[in-house]
Amino acid sequence: MAFFKLLRQSPLSARIGMAMILINIAAAIFAPVIAPYGETEVVGDVWLSASKDHLLGTDHIGRDMLTRLIYGARNTIAIAFVTTMLSFLIGSISGFFAATIGGWTDLTLSRVIDILMAFPTLIFALMVLSVTGTSITALIFVIAVLDSTRVYRLSRAVAMDIEVMEFCEAARLRGERTWWLMRHEILPNAMPPLVAEFGLRFCFVFLFIAALSFLGLGIQPPTADWGGMVRENAGAITFGIFTALWPAGAIAFLTVGVNLIVDWFLHIASGLKD
């Protein structure tokens, strides 16, 4: 109920953001139903301009652009979402753990993370992918591990702030175990910043995968993927064919939507603090 009350009070910008995300999610879930053609079906000439049959024209080998865009939502969003979830699972558990246990565990873990973070993510990912080759599993794991360092930092910092409060000390003095502390004392209080961070990390991962695909090192064709679609159709831009802007715009559309909600969420989270 509290959730619906919150929704009713949401500002216009957040509602727009929610609508933007819902459109994307709907496209992703119902892709086979709403897409006019098959994902890899060649339906006409190369780079046809928009028409009644092909609302957004066709791509560099004559596939329907709208269909590719809809399937692209499915692949791109699903992979980014799974990666972010994985990154949060690794990052927040280890972050909470380090903060609650403290001592040597915390020190070692934090030093390792510092070093991983000192390394530019894109370059690191490129180097690892050059060794592992580009498979979707490798992609998800590499990005999740790299990204979990940022999640670790935030979760640890948030958990530290909570951990020093007396209610945690009280639980410790009662004799509660680490897991209970993490689950019942820390997690409920860490939720607001973590949820906002989830939005931000999702955007980052999503853009990151798009960039890798754009560089030809992410999701491989013929799977429809927005970053890859930009790459395939970019050559035509200089001839005045702007097909590549559709998938690029779709990426921007989703991230703007998520950011609008994150902004609103950060706003309430900071207001609730005192």
Binding site: A211, G227, I237, L245, I251, A252, T255, N259
Partner: peptide, 22 residues
Amino acid sequence: TLSTISFPEFFVAYILIALLSV
């Protein structure tokens, strides 16, 4: 800034190309 942060670099780049070079 919210929109530029949300845009992938290549989107900004191709828009600029479309506008200022095509």
